[in-house]
């Protein structure tokens, strides 16, 4: 099943179409920067928000509507629990769909993870075993969400700390099959590649290559960049924690450059969620991403190269 990238008419009947997210560097908008963005309208190509923070019609939602007048906006959900074996929360799906109708985002995404079990919501992106059953569950839940939204979503590769014994598919195989059967796209988080590779004892570069072998370049609709913490455990092992509280690491910049060289320019987001610095710091990170995008901004040729593999 495929879905149009542009949204259908809104509830009002007005033919307001979503502004597409440009293949440029954008910034994750968080509450501490609302005033700055609303009052100073920084020169940022696009912004992304977590829709769970903008449900209802309160101050935050009003802020987002004002932001949306000036910027293309992407909705990056964290709580849909697309990997839940107990199905989706229909009320939450409806709330996200209502917000999407109002905001007309250029992209909508969530994660390859789950957050809800037994009626309890855990605000984390919890890992899935990569089984045929999980594939069927996630594809079904994505289909339900895409139907409610009337559009394609992107799904983000997770950061991983543990592995399951019964997990016959690799993450790359799982995501490749998921994009094929559900029609969703991939939000490729390069930092998560580095975190997962480090924690599972794999080369991040190899992990990225395996993912690109399984997921068609055309399915990659967005890229995320962020920083992560590194902690040495008592046994000497290095634990990478995806805390989004640091500048993008040199390793991730290298992976990103290789990725863009291979698949061409894509909308690229700088995420920073803990110890949030001044907006200018995020803009500085976005400028680095933009300089890489500018260097390889030939999507058609690069994607043709990938398609010819």
């Amino acid at each position: 099943m495929t879905f149009p990238q542009r949204s259908p008419k809104g509830a009002s009947g007005a033919a307001r179409l979503a502004d597409p997210i440009p293949a440029k560097a954008g910034i994750g908008l968080r509450f501490p920067h609302h005033d700055h963005v609303l009052n100073h309208r920084p020169d940022t190509a696009w912004l992304e928000v977590h829709p769970e923070n903008y449900l209802g019609r309160g101050v935050a939602a009003d802020d987002l509507e004002r932001v949306r007048r000036d910027y293309p906006v992407s909705l990056h959900a964290t709580g849909l629990s697309l990997g839940s074996g107990e199905g989706l929360d229909a009320e939450h799906v409806a709330a996200i769909a209502n917000l999407a109708r109002r905001i007309q985002p250029g992209l909508v995404s969530d994660h390859l993870s789950w957050s809800t079990s037994g009626g309890v919501h855990l605000p984390d992106l919890l890992p899935l075993p990569y089984t045929e059953e999980a594939l069927s569950v996630v594809a079904h839940n994505i289909d339900q969400l895409q139907t409610a939204l009337g559009r394609q979503i992107l799904i983000e590769n997770p950061s991983t700390y543990l592995a399951f014994a019964d997990s016959p598919l690799s993450e790359a195989e799982f995501l490749g099959e998921l994009t094929r059967v559900s029609g969703c796209g991939l939000l490729l988080d390069v930092n998560n590649i580095a975190v997962s590779g480090g924690n599972l004892g794999q080369s991040p570069a190899q992990r990225l290559a395996l993912l690109l072998d399984q997921v068609p370049a055309a399915a990659i609709g967005e890229i995320h960049l962020a920083g992560h913490a590194v902690r040495r455990l008592d046994d000497g092992t290095l634990l990478r924690i995806d805390d989004h509280g640091w500048p993008v690491s040199a390793e991730v910049w290298t992976l990103y450059e290789a990725l863009i060289a291979r698949i061409g320019a894509r909308p690229t987001l700088i995420e920073w969620d803990t110890a949030i610095p001044a907006f200018e710091t995020l803009q500085g990170q976005a400028d680095i991403a933009q300089s890489i995008l500018d260097r390889f901004n030939q999507p058609a040729r690069s994607m043709a190269h990938v398609a010819a593999r």
């Binding site: 839940s84 074996g85 079990s117 037994g118 309890v120 089984t131 399951f164 997990s167 004892g201 634990l239």
Partner: peptide, 28 residues
């Protein structure tokens, strides 16, 4: 899958893990 997720959620909220047979050996 739902059963595994109940176990994981319980371990997270309960502070346990770690001897879950569903987990594979890992560097962490």
């Amino acid at each position: 899958l739902a059963d595994l997720q109940r176990q994981v959620a319980g371990a997270i909220l309960g502070g346990g893990p770690s001897d879950m047979p569903a987990l594979a050996p890992s560097p962490i």
